[in-house]
Design a protein around this nucleic acid. Sequence first.
DNA 1: GAAAATTACTTTAAGCCTAAACTAATTTTC
DNA 2: GAAAATTAGTTTAGGCTTAAAGTAATTTTC
Lengths: 168, 168
Amino acid sequence: MELEQSAALDAETKIAEAPGDHKAELRLWLRLLATNTLIETEIRRRLRERFEVTLPRFDLMAQLERKPHGMTLGELSQRMMVTNGNVTGLVDRLLAEEIVTRRQHKSDRRSHIVSLTEKGRRQFARMAKEHEDWIAGMFGDLSQNEFSTLTKLLGKLKTSVRSAIAQS
Amino acid sequence: MELEQSAALDAETKIAEAPGDHKAELRLWLRLLATNTLIETEIRRRLRERFEVTLPRFDLMAQLERKPHGMTLGELSQRMMVTNGNVTGLVDRLLAEEIVTRRQHKSDRRSHIVSLTEKGRRQFARMAKEHEDWIAGMFGDLSQNEFSTLTKLLGKLKTSVRSAIAQS
DNA sequence: GAAAATTACTTTAAGCCTAAACTAATTTTC
DNA sequence: GAAAATTAGTTTAGGCTTAAAGTAATTTTC
């Protein structure tokens, strides 16, 4: 009842809008951006303070951790949603710290497989545990219900964005 | 009915979780991050393609546009959630393009006021219009109801994150 | 099976971004 | 009102990131 009424109100609002006015959409986007920046900045700060590591390096290690047999640079760049050149540079720096290894692909000589070293695996395990607690702490005020609704709606938004990008 | 049942299930799930296990929180964070990156990357691409402008410059112009009398560098950096040094550099580049002006504060000689030039205002107006349509297009698959729920929940998440950061 | 196209990756140039150290001006403290 | 603390902004060194151009290997096409 309550839900349906608010849906009806929203529909009216939409009709009442001036054509081409998208203030609500813009507000949602700005809120998404602000929330993301807030979390990201704090995570960066803690990663640096506690582990002297950057977020991109942590992210790369997190990707590799899930693939014990390693991953090509291309696969890494796809999963991390960054360019190939970016990954080349990150891997170079992590190689120097002996966090990862890079070896030639067996059959395709253009390709290289990157894996975590034992040192890298140990270091990531330490960080991942705290990282999880940080996130849980930041999300703590949400109820289980709000939680799953938000996850679901973000999934839907992601799909919507993807389709808008695809057909543009 | 349906809602309450799923809430009960969720509460059970929470209790059933191993202590210190925060997989659901992590998944939500990764989804937020991925959605944000997806949108941001596409917006950057379009801004560059259509207007040869970067997202940080667009963001700075958007802040200034709302304050016709201008803003100090510190206020800008606060609103943009970036460092002072970052804003110094951005303003330098926008000055060179005659998008903004920088003049001394009347009473506080440490402070400088940045404003949009007429050229900057015109340029921003052109961009803002398309930008709004892009966002609306990307968010198009969501119903009005999902829309307002998502906005509300993100607001709550932001508050939760802020309080976690404040007390750490 | 040679030419053309594609793929995997690297390099380069330029901008973004940060933390830390700095300068100069203002405010607070005593 | 002089010393100490704070504030506004800049500079610097280093890492992140991208687009574009380049190299080398592989696959496709005919």
